[in-house]
Design a protein around this nucleic acid. Sequence first.
DNA 1: CCCGTATATTACCCATGGGTAAGAAATAGT
DNA 2: ACTATTTCTTACCCATGGGTAATATACGGG
Lengths: 288, 288
Amino acid sequence: MGNIRATFRSQCDNSHAMDARIPSSNNESPWLPFESRRRARDEKREAVLRTAVALFLEQGYHGATLNEVAKRLNITKPALYNYFRGKDEILYECWSIGNELVDDCIAETSAGGGSGLDKLRKLIVRYAELMTADYGKSLVRFDIHDLSEDNRKIVQTAKRRIDRAFRDYITDGVKDGSVKACDPKLAAFAIAGSLNWIGHWFQPDGELTGRAVAEEFAIRLTEGIAETTTQVTSTRKTTTRKAAAPAAQKADKPPRKGNASREETSEHHARTAADAAGQSKRARSRLR
Amino acid sequence: MGNIRATFRSQCDNSHAMDARIPSSNNESPWLPFESRRRARDEKREAVLRTAVALFLEQGYHGATLNEVAKRLNITKPALYNYFRGKDEILYECWSIGNELVDDCIAETSAGGGSGLDKLRKLIVRYAELMTADYGKSLVRFDIHDLSEDNRKIVQTAKRRIDRAFRDYITDGVKDGSVKACDPKLAAFAIAGSLNWIGHWFQPDGELTGRAVAEEFAIRLTEGIAETTTQVTSTRKTTTRKAAAPAAQKADKPPRKGNASREETSEHHARTAADAAGQSKRARSRLR
DNA sequence: CCCGTATATTACCCATGGGTAAGAAATAGT
DNA sequence: ACTATTTCTTACCCATGGGTAATATACGGG
């Protein structure tokens, strides 16, 4: 679920006045131009990431400099090194947040129950919407070669896990009769490809909302493999309602142990070994 | 790391005219280790591009150095500047070749005739197969930010043109009854996304051939929008012209507005102003 | 053979930008 | 207030790798 990382509380919530100087306009940096500081460390860390991911997407990882990132935050480059070991770690962390968001999607979807097709569509909707936002885009726009060796491995592992989710839902669907017989591998590739591509073309200021794209894609991408012809209104077809079994736990993620097949995956993503353990809390303030 | 070794061997075994010696093993570089030269200029130019595109894909554009490119060709870095102005131009040329291949696909497909659906499928097959090879991959793996300003514009223009082809075929299909009513823009995005993604996951040494993927995708990606339920064997026809009454609105969630001017495109690609004229012959040996 | 041109080599330049060192400014604790 | 700690700044380092200059080698033609 949207854990703490959704800390969008404005930095103008200054209860006891004092430094009530509102930054000239925007809602970004917690660093007022070199004066009153003192805001939670994690909050600053996230501000760095927000700025970095936006800049990386805007100018490319190599086109964006740390000086520019710092400048947008009203600080200087070395200050960034209080929160990150280097540029590539910033890149990785951006990616990691996106990956956690995806993990949450998968967890929710798996917990939600329903037929294979139902789950597939739910995942598509959520995943697609992620791809319209910065952290989601980072999953598909950043180059794996720019990561450290270790992080690259993590990313590749996560790729496989996400691909696995798509394939599993499809396989489930074939079994429960909601999905036509097909090759789960290729079908997953096709679907993931369409979704990932959103991260390349979607523009927030366009005429389409992320939500609209997501819902359209949920139908479009499953039209070909859905066993029952999809009528407009019936998103919940699945005549063979498999007794909504596992509504059980809410948003807790099953460890989802990834086996190790040496196959290609339709994804790129990962997470740290740390949070690979379980919760996708964004509370790790590791460093140094 | 001096290549002293290569430099001094030139005068040892000069059996003058007998430079028919086959390089130790591979089939790559026209430059035998600094001795008999004299091969067509264009051939060398293309050898540079072949090597460069492979290396860029392998290590990333920024991870690959010109020294490494040169080394693989048995030459030194400055020699590359006889054929290209700089690294970014090499990148662009790689991209450009891929783009020309796509253009050829579109040209052939358009010339072939058939229903909108037929053309769409033909394009999918050809395009998909391109995506399994190096130059095709370069279309979707290279970052537009690494290009010069001018080349970037060319690329973006070409993106739009390719996207246009997909949309046009879909629109044609809707008109001639071979394709269900749908939003051509989103449908094109979805299809192009799946196809472009091939460039990210396909491995030539995998279990699938490019051809197999291509044909599978041609069916899979059009299953949802084909008017006639596709029997695997019937790639042609459009028999049951389901009356123009096109399945009404199937999955209408969003406003579903028509087109617009300043839209996103589902592609990235381009070509030089030169060959934008017509033929995509590979004969331009421009430089300096 | 000798020269001109194309092509390649060696040796070098140098801007860029990630990263570091040392110390100042702010904060928290006592 | 004094000190310890964290955070941030100024001032620098320096490796990397794209790009250039000067020069050497091969070839083709006369």
